[in-house]
Design a protein around this nucleic acid. Structure first.
Ligand SMILES: [Mn+2]
Ligand SMILES: [Mn+2]
Ligand SMILES: [Zn+2]
Ligand SMILES: [Zn+2]
Lengths: 156, 156
DNA sequence: GTTTTTAATGAAAATGATTTTCATTTGCTC
DNA sequence: GAGCAAATGAAAATCATTTTCATTAAAAAC
């Protein structure tokens, strides 16, 4: 229920500040990403947007997702199924950093944020040590566990 | 210097055991992977093999690399440059598990095995916790740090 | 509100890594 | 050495993503 006292979406500032325009397509794409907790492909986003705005083309989806990745609003992943997957990087409340479990049989992807405290600590230690040894400025990391999900494990 | 008292390459057993044939192309491809410490693309492998065996086609390179990945002899990575990268998973002496630093500017990839002991420990704890919570049988993991390498950092 | 500027867009074509097809070759068993 | 299935090469197909270019539409200027 959108009240009339709702300000403009939180991400508008990110666009305006850098001279990017706020367009129907961009609003729609962010809306789709905002409503799901899944890891959508460009085509997934296209199909979802298409229901509401049939005139928005797949090219625009690709271009917009790329822009959103550049802006740090969206994460882009490769889970090994031959297409990129996208996921909102943050909400108005803040970033939602997490890692992934990827089922190598059915492709299911599970987010997890638990157990992450220990990880964070180790990661920052590791990052420091690596930075020093290799003179490498670390800005980001990717952690994925592969294996068999609940269902696929059972079926084996 | 290959002495005449050298047995067949260590990986022959892996092939024979499962009914796969040992062919010129496969020998050549493994040889190329064995001689480098880089992360080669299929085309890289093709070019290297081509120098010695100009009749081996790119298709065979793809097929063989895929087979080697299935057999667990080779790791396949995506470092974000639009092509898969391959690397020998083990040597006669054992596995050479390691993680990667990826420069987001020049694409350079650095292997590291230091600092890995702490990681191993955390990983096994994390894996156990995740396995239990999500009923997910973890068989593998991927850890990559992204950032600026020495040189690219300097140029910025 | 209208005009102006130029970023954004859609459709179609291009790209490029990887896969498939199929006729031919080659390792391996007997 | 013969027989046979596995492996191969060349060419075509696939398919996610990118590029091109003429048109549209945000947002700034008036
Ligand atoms: Mn996720
Ligand atoms: Mn490596
Ligand atoms: Zn599964
Ligand atoms: Zn670099």
């Amino acid at each position: 229920m959108m009240g009339k006292h709702m300000g403009p979406p939180w991400w508008h500032g990110r666009f305006r500040g850098r001279g990017y325009r706020i367009t129907v397509a961009r609003e729609a794409i962010l809306d789709v990403l905002n409503r799901t907790s899944e890891h959508l492909s460009a085509e997934d986003v296209y199909l979802a947007v298409h229901k509401v705005h049939p005139n928005v083309g797949l090219t625009t989806i690709y271009r917009t997702l790329e822009l959103l990745v550049q802006l740090g609003l969206v994460f882009k992943f490769d889970f090994g199924d031959g297409r990129a997957r996208y996921e909102l990087a943050e909400t108005p409340k803040g970033t939602r950093h997490h890692h992934h479990l990827v089922c190598t049989v059915c492709g299911r992807v599970i987010d997890y944020t638990d157990f992450i405290d220990d990880e964070i600590e180790l990661l920052s230690r590791t990052e420091q040590a690596l930075s020093k040894k290799f003179n490498f400025k670390i800005t980001n990391h990717l952690i994925q566990f592969y294996g068999l999900c609940n269902e696929c494990h059972r079926k084996q």
